[in-house]
Computed example of a mutant assay.
Amino acid sequence: MSLVLIGTCITSAASYGFTYLASLAEVSERTPDERARATAGLFVYAYFGFSLPVIACGVLADRFGLLVAMEVFAVV
């Protein structure tokens, strides 16, 4: 069981890293004159995109239970 968890953690970290790297390269290529501004915007959107669903699931789990939160997350 612990090997599965370790493998999942490594895979998840790698995919987030590759996602950030690819999006950063794309933003940098499309806006060479406004690279700093575009990079800052990218990270703002990325942090909101990664954190808001987790926060929403936590609120749902507190109010309605874990199963309901997982079902809503899967549907959305």
Rank of each mutant, 00 (worst) to 15 (best):
C57H: 02
A36M: 10
M70K: 15
I10K: 08
E34F: 15
S12E: 03
G17K: 13
V76L: 11
E29F: 10
Y45G: 05
F18H: 04
A74E: 05
R37C: 08
L24C: 10
G65A: 07
G58D: 07
L42Y: 10
I6Y: 07
R30P: 00
A61K: 01
F64C: 06
L67P: 00
Y47K: 08
T31L: 13
L21N: 08
P53G: 09
L67R: 10
E34I: 05
S2E: 06
G17I: 07
F64Y: 14
A38G: 09
T31V: 11
F73N: 02
A14T: 13
I55R: 02
P53W: 14
A38Q: 04
A61W: 00
C57M: 12
T8C: 08
A25G: 00
L60S: 02
R35H: 10
P53T: 05
V59G: 01
S2H: 13
F18D: 00
M70S: 13
Y20E: 10
T39R: 15
G65N: 06
R37I: 11
A40K: 15
A61T: 04
S15E: 06
F64G: 03
F48D: 00
E71A: 05
A74Q: 08
Y47Q: 05
V68C: 08
C57F: 03
F18M: 05
C9D: 09
A69F: 03
D33M: 07
A74H: 09
R37L: 13
E71M: 02
P53Q: 08
E34D: 07
A25C: 02
C9Y: 15
G17A: 12
C9E: 08
G17M: 13
A25E: 02
G58A: 12
T31K: 14
L52K: 03
L60R: 04
G41F: 04
P32V: 14
R30F: 02
V68H: 14
A40I: 05
G7E: 04
M1A: 13
